[in-house]
């Protein structure tokens, strides 16, 4: 029995050196050749840098809005709401989001609102919205910014990311990239 325990500890230490030390070092070394040296993909505009994959809050009516978030897009943490589909308090909250959205976006029909813009994401950091969720914000933004609706439609089309290889998965829009492009459009 002693022999087993002694071997167990020694083998554990050797494994620690190999699977933590050497393995991490190899992956870290490879990461130095990856975009931004493996520190997360970034986008820069006007001397400011942002993480491309981490969603941001857009509460201002002049920007395309992101999805609701359980952590207010503070990426120091991450969380979903973990609310059940049957939870009465949760359903009241969704109803309130729909009502608020309609107030801020006059002229939009309730049946045009896609579910993603009134439900919280899993991470609370979702960088994307659906194409429909962007389209129904056109009227509001056109009015506030004084940009023709056709130009905004074009902006959405050019910022729509197609399915992988055009075949697999959903279409989507990165809200941050869309809003950065929107700011450029104004200038």
């Amino acid at each position: 029995m002693d022999a087993y325990i002694f071997s167990a500890f020694r083998l554990t230490i050797v494994s620690l050196l190999f699977f933590v030390g050497i393995y991490s070092a190899i992956v870290f070394g490879i990461a130095q050749f990856a975009p931004n040296h493996g520190k997360g993909e970034i986008i820069s505009q006007n001397n400011k840098t942002y993480y491309a994959n981490i969603g941001q809050t857009f509460t201002d009516d002049k920007y395309f809005q992101s999805r609701p978030s359980a952590v207010a897009y503070n990426a120091a943490g991450s969380a979903g709401s973990n609310k059940a589909p049957s939870n009465p308090d949760y359903l009241k909250e969704v109803q309130a989001r729909i009502d608020t959205f309609l107030v801020h976006n006059p002229g939009v029909q309730k049946s045009e609102i896609p579910s993603d813009i009134v439900t919280a994401s899993g991470s609370g950091l979702d960088p994307n919205i659906s194409v429909q969720a962007a389209k129904i914000q056109i009227k509001r933004i056109a009015k506030i910014r004084g940009i023709a609706e056709a130009n905004l439609k074009q902006l959405i089309i050019s910022n729509t990311e197609p399915p992988l290889l055009g075949l697999f998965g959903p279409e989507k829009i990165n809200v941050l990239k869309l809003n950065l492009a929107l700011d450029e459009l104004k200038n």
Binding site: T119, A120, S121, G122, N128, P170, K172
Partner: peptide, 8 residues
């Protein structure tokens, strides 16, 4: 159902 799910 999009509650708790990611768009991507």
């Amino acid at each position: 159902s999009m509650e708790g799910k990611e768009i991507r």
